[in-house]
Amino acid sequence: MKKIIEENAVSNLAELAKLDIGSSDKKKLLRDLEAVLEYVAELQSLETDETSSQKNPPACGEVLSADNTLRPDEVKTEFISELSTKQFPEEHNGFLRVPPVFE
């Protein structure tokens, strides 16, 4: 059977997901990922409508028959809790301090 993912997939995905993974864990994670992907690959045998109307997958709300609940675009500050902001790793006058993005 054709391999669904390559040997170095875990390293690439970990880079995309910003996850540090030890080299010993990588082998185990690759095995786990292969097992799950082999299981879910059965979906490829399911016939789905690939015509233009079904080119994009249906939105979750459509599947769940749930409507979007919208509210007027007004700024509300009731949930800026001091307890939350105090727990930021770096905080300044109630604001979140972010490490420099550019070197």
């Binding site: 970990a14 997901a17 879910v40 979906l43 490829q44 399911l46 789905t48 994009n56 997958p57 599947v63």
Partner: peptide, 23 residues
């Protein structure tokens, strides 16, 4: 996280995520 990153990544999205949503 790795699985989710995989099924949403370019080249695999249609075969996995889009297919699952149709299913």
């Amino acid at each position: 996280i790795l699985l989710g990153t995989f099924v949403l990544s370019s080249g695999y999205y249609d075969a996995f995520y889009a297919k699952a949503q149709k299913a």
